[in-house]
Design a protein around this nucleic acid. Structure first.
Lengths: 203, 203
DNA sequence: GACAACCTATCTATCGATAGGTAGAATCTC
DNA sequence: GAGATTCTACCTATCGATAGATAGGTTGTC
């Protein structure tokens, strides 16, 4: 039999399929072939496709939170933290024009259970809250100067990142060079100018 | 038999289904029921589902261009033009949390033909070019003051709008009040302050 | 009667899902 | 510690439902 981590391999493979094709555009057969097992074995771990979706989002959310903690421990300055954060999304689209799970599941929201949707919303909140916190701190430090609500701005930045992924995929454009992109820089009227060699990757 | 516009009714109904559910999440059966005809009749007009996708995007693109022309003829000032444009997206999410066709098809890109993808890219270009033009004009008028490339900023605004639709759907949040949202206003450092009663709607 | 605009009926392929079987590891019983 | 039992981790085979698609008939219009 397989050593152990079959479940993890299923999650890994299905995440790639979701990010590239969308949740309704791959089947248990595709997934089984990708992992090298039978469809029944996937049902053993994830009885219904919705179970898979839920595990996928929870895992993704947890992975994201972990990366955010890493960023906080590595980058001290707010601007570095923000640059690292933005780089997460750039690295995504470099890797086969993948979308963020949030974007995919939000687009496919109509065919997902309420449980999955709640987790999707929680992921969004995690992002917006974290960015908002960084913005507030950066404002105090004097790194960013913006008027208006940090929360509202944070939501805008998150939306911008999600939208950028869609646009980059449509245009088949790779991610921009690391650092804070000009648009966000304009948004913040921040003066720093990197480059920030942020190297985190969304799993 | 039916008067004439069955084709148009099919397009209308399928666009709603695409915007709410996604392209891979509705069937010819769903569509047939929605229109009140049989699936074979849909195949009569759109032999393959990809034909439907192509007609859908082309129609959407044309509709968008028409609205942009209307905006130009109605709004003289750049700020009014931009506000009307942004309002198109807000009105979308008010109507049953629909997504823009661009967002949906970009998310489902992996299962679409090259022909459809080209049309998707053309739609993106139309938007970015139009916004860019308005930004340049507004800069000359003195309505907007921003540094950096208008084209890059325009792309950012388009991405922001697409991303906002995803976020609003996930959060089940209705569209914001009409006018230029604070985030975009910050982006442009523009001083006008509406309100702009833009009333265009994406078909 | 020719054509357009539908229909009924049906096809093949594939979907998610389930039933039931099995090899081998783990655990319990004495 | 040997044998019986149970559990884990898969498998084969197949289900009913549904996907997109097609052949060929019917009906209304000109």
């Amino acid at each position: 039999m397989e050593t152990a981590d079959t479940k993890e391999r299923i999650l890994e493979a299905s995440q790639a399929l979701v990010q590239v094709r969308g949740f309704n555009a791959f089947s248990y057969r595709d997934l089984a072939e990708s992992v090298g097992i039978r469809t029944a074995s996937i049902h053993y771990y994830f009885p219904r496709k919705d179970d898979l979706a839920l595990s996928l989002v929870r895992r993704y959310h947890e992975g994201f939170r972990q990366i955010l903690r890493q960023i906080e421990s590595r980058e001290v300055r707010s601007e570095g933290r923000l640059a690292s954060y933005l780089n997460l999304f750039s690295s995504l689209s470099e890797d086969g024009l993948r979308l963020c799970l949030f974007g995919v599941f939000s687009a496919d929201a109509a065919s997902l259970s309420e449980e999955v949707l709640m987790e999707i919303r929680a992921f969004c909140d995690t992002n917006v809250d974290w960015v908002s916190k960084v913005l507030k701190a950066g404002q105090k430090e004097g790194a960013f100067s913006f008027s208006g609500s940090p929360l509202e701005l944070a939501r805008g930045i998150f939306a911008l990142m999600e939208g950028e992924l869609l646009v980059r995929r449509a245009l088949r454009a790779p991610g921009p060079p690391p650092g804070i992109p000009p648009v966000v820089r304009a948004l913040l009227s921040c003066r720093g100018d990197g480059p920030f060699a942020a190297t985190d990757h969304i799993p």
